[in-house]
Amino acid sequence: MLVHICCSVDSHYFLQKLQTEYPEEKLTGFFYDPNIHPYSEYYLRLLDVKRSCKMLGIDLIEGEYDVENWLEAVRGLEHEPEKGSRCSVCFDRRFEISAQKAREMGETSFTSTLLTSPKKSLKQLQAAGDALAAREGISFVAPDYRKASGTQEQNIMAKEDALYRQDYCGCMFGLNIQRDQQSKLADELFVPISGQVQPESIEERIEMYEKRWQMEEEHIPHKIIKQRFLNWRLTMGLLRVRKEVVPAHFLPYSTLRGEYTRGKIEYSIGKVHYMNRDEVRFITLDTYNSLAGTDYQTVTELIYAPPAFSKEVEVRSRLGITPYDLSVILVTEEIPDNKIEILCQSKTYSDVKEVLVNV
C-alpha cells in the first residue's frame, strides 16, 4: 500500500494504526506536497517525516516539488477559506499524483495521512481519493482514525516522540489568511537580503532539527523546550544624508515609534553618537568591528553578509544598552554631520521558539 504523507504529526500515528490493522501489508511512504511554502518549510517537514519513517521502519519516497504546476492548478482560488475550493483542488492534485505513483509501483491501493488531520474534511478527502483510485484501477483506503479519541492519541504520540508541529496547513494562501485572522506577521514568507538566520524562523528550526537528528544518531541525551521571547523583523531600512542614500546597517531590535524620522547628530558619549530625535544612535564600522571581532571593509559588505543574529545582539549589549532598549542603532562608515533622514519599517512581537538543550 502506498501512503501519501503530508507531515510527521499526521503520519506518525496514522502509519502505526495501519501497521496494526494491515500487518501483512508492506507500507511505503510517499511525500508529495508541492503545496507547502516556502521551500524551507517543505524541507523541514520532509526532514521530520524521514525521522518518523526511520523510527517506524517504513520506506519513504520523495515526490517532485513541482510547485509551479500546483500554483497553476489553484490559480483564481487564492482567497478561498480553509476547506474551500482551493483545498479540494489541492487534494485532487496530490491524490492524482499519489494514485499514479501507486499504479506505477504495482500497488493495488493507496491512502493518505491527510485523513487524520483535524483541519481536513474526511468526506471531502474520501470523495477525491475514490474518484482518482477508480480512474487508475486501484482502491483508496480511507480509515477514520480520528474517532474514539484518535486525535488526542495522535497529539500525545507527537509530543512523546518530539515531532515537528507546524502551525499552518502548508500553502502561502492559507498561511496569509490565518496570520491575518491572528493579527500576526507571516514571517515564514520572507528572509532578509543578507540571508541572516532570524530567531524563530524556519531556517533556525531547520538548524535545530538537523542538530537533533545528529544528537540522536550519536545517542546524546537532549530535549526540545519552548521559551517565550521578544521577536523582531526588519522589512525595510533606509538612511539618507542631505537627500543622498548612504549605506547603513540596522542592528537587531532597531525600532522607531513610527516609520520615519529626521534630525542631526546632537552629541556623543564614548563611541556612540546620538541623534536629536527618536532615540536614534550611530556607531562607525570601525567601532562595530571592534565590538563584534569582525573585519568588514565596507558597510555594504556588512549589510549583505552580517554575522549571526545572536552575535549582533551581543554588540548591542556591549554598547551599554539595556536588554529592554529598542532604539535604532545604525552602523555607518562615517558619522553623518548633515541633515539625516531615516526610514525604519520593523516589527517587534511576543513569540515562542523551540530550543534544543542537552540533558
Results as ranks from 00 to 15, higher is better:
324 Y>V: 14
145 Y>H: 01
351 D>K: 08
247 P>F: 02
116 T>M: 08
233 R>T: 08
292 A>S: 07
172 M>A: 15
337 D>M: 04
5 I>Q: 01
68 E>S: 14
318 R>W: 02
284 T>W: 01
25 E>A: 05
17 K>Y: 02
288 Y>Q: 04
161 D>Q: 15
38 P>V: 13
181 Q>C: 07
279 E>W: 07
118 P>R: 07
170 G>R: 10
307 P>S: 03
161 D>S: 14
148 A>G: 10
162 A>Q: 14
20 T>Y: 12
11 S>T: 10
105 M>C: 05
321 I>G: 00
197 V>F: 00
140 F>N: 06
69 N>H: 12
27 L>M: 06
150 G>H: 03
21 E>A: 15
235 T>D: 11
324 Y>K: 12
114 L>D: 01
203 E>K: 12
159 K>H: 06
280 V>R: 02
27 L>N: 11
9 V>Y: 00
244 E>N: 12
205 R>Y: 07
12 H>C: 10
339 K>T: 15
77 L>D: 10
203 E>Y: 08
8 S>W: 00
22 Y>P: 13
112 S>E: 06
159 K>G: 06
147 K>C: 12
71 L>Q: 08
263 G>F: 08
212 R>A: 13
256 L>G: 08
341 E>A: 14
26 K>H: 04
238 L>I: 14
98 S>L: 08
154 Q>C: 11
54 K>Y: 03
267 Y>E: 11
219 H>E: 15
53 C>N: 09
237 G>Q: 09
321 I>S: 01
48 D>I: 04
288 Y>N: 01
17 K>T: 03
354 E>V: 10
178 Q>P: 05
96 E>A: 05
257 R>L: 10
